[in-house]
Each structure stands twice: as structure tokens, then as C-alpha cells.
Computed example of a mutant assay.
Amino acid sequence: MTTATPARRKSGLVLFLAVTFVASWLSWLIAIAVGGPAMSFPTVIPYLLGAFGPMIGAIVIRLRRASRRQPTPAHAVRLPLIGLLWTPVLLAVAAGTVVGAALLAQQLGGPPVSLTAAQTLIEVSGGPLAFAGVMLVVGPLSEEFGWRGTMHPRLRAKMGRLLAGLLLGVIWSVWHLPLFFVAGTVQNAFGLLTFSGLTYMLSVIPMALLAAYGYERAGVLGAIAIHFGANATMSLVGVSGLLPQALIVGVQTVVALFLLAVHRDRKKVSATPEPAQQELVPAHR
């Protein structure tokens, strides 16, 4: 009779992905069937629920680990106090890659960068706090406890940070596919089988690498800072043309590869299991 190895018992990657994709894709398929713009009632309910698929997957994995009294994965990053200091830096890095690429695109004949569109978007959203709240919840908070807080450390137990980031980026990109068929989403506006749509799918990969760097620097808070900074800035700058999209992919790829190359592991992982740590999943869902 054979038994599963400890690493295999602890991972839960397949379960996490199954729960995440089923929760998200089923919700978005319901949104597609209901019809109407994503933020209109009642479509908004399954649309927003789908965004929390990775969070639901993270909760399932944490409950499973707790019931089996398994330790936190060795590469899980707790929230260090220095993470609070890194947050504004990571926000600036993420926003800077978008603004820098948009300004470069403008110099190369692309659409001009204007603050007018940003002001209009904030007003339509109900003010700066409402805009920031929506951008924080839909994406960074709903996803990062799953992608980075749960999946990334389990991948890191099997491979290097670059390969882990690339693999997670591909999976994260595929996860977005149903959104191309939900009216009113950015993905739907691009269209799946277009250069803009394909560039969007590609852009998720360097974002995953940047978020991986943020996670290894400051835990889930760092990944949230990267995700929020990039998403909010792209919305404010109004990135829609193919040229700025492509340049953002290029700039973020270069920056992410550089940061990951110069960042060292906090400690070498030993072959023996480590004491259980606090895994970063919110206490209140």
C-alpha cells in the first residue's frame, strides 16, 4: 500500500484551483446568462461574487489545513512590520510602471495622458474614497489572499520564484476569460480575439511577477499594494490603446524581472517542516 508524501498532503493546489475556478466561472456564467452591463442590477451580484473566487479557494484551503493540523507552507510570508513601510514604495512602483509606459506611448504618437479623464472617473465613481474603495475590493482584496497568499507559497515549495510567478500568471490570465463575455467590463470592451484582448491576457503575467515580488517583500499586503497601484492607475490614466497596453507589458516585465533578480530569500528553507505560522487570510470574510 502506498501513501502520499508529506509535500503532496500539504499542498492542496489542485483543490484551491478547482474551488477558485468553479466559484468564479460559475458566477460569471450566471452574469452572462442574466445579461446587461456588469454593474447593473441584478448582473452585478454574480459579477462581483465571481471576483471572490480566489478568496473562497483560500478559505477552503485554510479550513482544510486547520482540520488536518498541517503547518503553514514554508514559503508563506507573514506580515512583517517592515511591510507597512514597503507598502507606499510598492504602490509607487506599480503606478510608476503604468504612468511611465503611458508617457512613453504619448511620445511615440499614442494617446495623450490627461488628468481630465481621471477627474471625470473619480466624480462618476462618487468621489476619491468611493473610487479607491471599489478599486481595492474588486481585484486586490478579493484575489490576493488566494493567488499570492495561498497559491504562490505552495508553488514556491516546488520551484523558483520566477517560474512560480510565470506559472501563476498564466493561470491568472486564463481565469479572466469569462469576463470577455460580460457586458460592461474592460475585457468585453477589448474583445477576446483582438490585439488589445490578447495584449490584456499577456499583461496579466508581468503583473503576477510584480505581485510576487510584492508578496515576498511584504506579504499579502505587498501584493495588494502592487495590484491596487497598477489597476487604479490604469483606470485613471485611461489606458485603452494598443500601444500603451503593449508598453505597459514591456515596462512591467523589465521592472519585475529586475526586482526579482536582486531580491534575496529571507532565509534558506530547510528540508524539515517548520513550526506553524499565521497564514494571512482575513478572520472576517
Rank of each mutant, 00 (worst) to 15 (best):
K158C: 05
T2I: 15
G238E: 02
L177G: 08
L162R: 13
A276Q: 12
V99H: 04
H263G: 05
L121P: 05
L49Y: 07
L26P: 10
R8Y: 14
G229R: 03
T5E: 14
R264P: 03
Y213L: 11
L121N: 08
R68Q: 14
A183P: 03
H227K: 06
V99I: 15
L193W: 15
R217W: 03
A4Q: 15
V93I: 15
L104W: 02
G160N: 12
L49W: 10
P140C: 11
R156Q: 09
L81I: 13
V174C: 10
V34D: 05
A105N: 02
T199Y: 01
G229C: 08
Q119S: 15
L179K: 03
F181K: 04
S235L: 10
V19E: 03
I224Q: 00
W172Y: 13
P80A: 12
I61D: 04
L15Q: 14
K267M: 09
L247Q: 07
G184T: 05
T3C: 09
L163Q: 10
H263Q: 14
G222C: 09
A38K: 05
P6N: 07
S142Q: 02
T2F: 15
F190V: 00
L115T: 15
V251I: 13
T2W: 14
G241H: 03
M159V: 06
V98E: 02
F258K: 05
W175R: 10
G146P: 03
L13D: 09
R68N: 12
V77Q: 10
F145V: 06
M55G: 04
I122V: 15
E144M: 02
V113N: 01
L168R: 03
A212E: 06
P273Q: 04
L192M: 10
P73V: 01
G184D: 10
A223M: 02
V239H: 01
S114A: 15
L260W: 09
L247G: 05
V254W: 15
F258C: 14
G238S: 07
W147I: 05
V239W: 00
L84Y: 15
A101F: 08
A212F: 00
L90V: 09
P282K: 04
L247T: 06
S24Q: 07
V137W: 09
V170Y: 06
W175P: 10
F180Y: 12
